[in-house]
């Protein structure tokens, strides 16, 4: 079979086997904990990307690679690899292939700072309070070991993903689609585009792993659909999404997933609280599982 050239329209997608199983679950990580960790890891990647002043498309690619890493029986296990290290490796790897290469130093500093924050879902004031550099300063010795870890995890990510680093994003496509639908330019066009992008970026963190299950065109159509409904822009009559090769079934699923994302995040915040930290290292994950077993036995 001749391999298809990858383009802005095609993305490697997960197989059903990859979606139904994971190394972490084989190792005994509860599914809900796994969901929480992958979500928190994706948020960590997003935060690091912003601090590293990377453009959103680079950050989005890193998050997609991060998510790809954990799924399937041949993927990485949360009890074997540190989610935070894998996050750092993906952002380092993606930035390396982009026009915005970041030094290992910058990446390590950023992750040290983010690890020093007291909570996974901190109050906004936490960022302002975290001004004490001594809590996240990286010494030269720590830096050298961290760099080794970073490089080892970069190789690990490449190995697990079979060097498949191609990520096609729906953002630019969605703009083209909105132009095709004459939403851009229009008075509400800017608001609609902004809302569409917000949904596309939120979908990166979705527990349904939308970027692994749906091609960019479908994601773009769904985000426009949701955004237009929210803003009140009138959509065309008829099955306009088919113009963009999107099926009604896929659209329905994605609209539901994008709509339910806010509720999911609220539940997560409630679950972990404003102080709690989602375990992002293998050791912490093992600790969390142990804690849960003890609680169950005690109850």
């Amino acid at each position: 079979m001749a391999p298809e050239p990858l383009s802005i329209l095609t993305n490697p997608l997960a197989t059903v086997e990859q979606l139904t199983s994971s190394s972490s679950q084989f190792d005994g990580v509860p599914a809900d904990l796994e969901t929480s960790i992958i979500h928190a890891g994706a948020r960590l990647t997003q935060a690091a990307g912003i601090l590293l002043q990377l453009p959103q498309d680079i950050i989005a690619q890193a998050i997609v690679l991060f998510t790809r890493f954990w799924i399937g029986s041949e993927g990485g296990s949360l009890l074997e690899h540190n989610a935070s290290d894998v996050s750092a490796a993906t952002i380092y790897l993606v930035s390396k292939l982009s026009a915005y290469q970041k030094s290992p130093r910058s990446v390590i500093n950023t992750y040290a700072y983010l690890a020093s924050l007291p909570a996974t879902f901190p109050l906004p004031s936490t960022y302002i309070d975290a001004q004490d550099a001594s809590t996240y300063h990286v010494s030269e010795g720590t830096y050298l070991t961290s760099r080794q870890t970073l490089n080892a995890n970069e190789s690990l990510v490449l190995r697990i993903l079979g060097f498949q680093t191609h990520v096609a994003l729906p953002h630019a496509l969605s703009i083209t689609y909105m132009q095709t639908l004459s939403f851009i330019p229009s008075p509400s066009g800017t608001a609609l585009a902004a809302r569409t992008f917000e949904h596309l970026n939120a979908a990166l963190l979705s527990p349904q792993l939308l970027y692994l299950t749906h091609p960019p065109a479908t994601l773009a159509v769904a985000a426009i659909y949701v955004a237009a409904r929210e803003i009140g822009t009138k959509l065309p009559e008829g099955e306009w999404w088919e113009v963009f090769d999107c099926e009604r079934e896929d659209l329905g699923f994605l609209v539901l997933a994008m709509g339910s994302f806010e509720g999911f995040v609220r539940e997560e915040v409630q679950k972990w609280g404003r102080r709690g930290k989602v375990p992002l290292t293998a050791k912490q994950v093992a600790g969390e599982i142990e804690k849960r077993t003890m609680l169950e036995e005690g109850a």
Binding site: V16, L19, S21, A31, T35, S206, L209, V255, M258, G259
Partner: peptide, 23 residues
């Protein structure tokens, strides 16, 4: 279904609230 099990989340959460084109 596979996705939902993997993600550990039910797909019928707030069906009514979101104005999706019903499946």
């Amino acid at each position: 279904a596979a996705r939902d099990t993997a993600a550990g989340i039910g797909s019928n959460g707030d069906e009514e609230a979101s104005g999706r084109p019903a499946k």
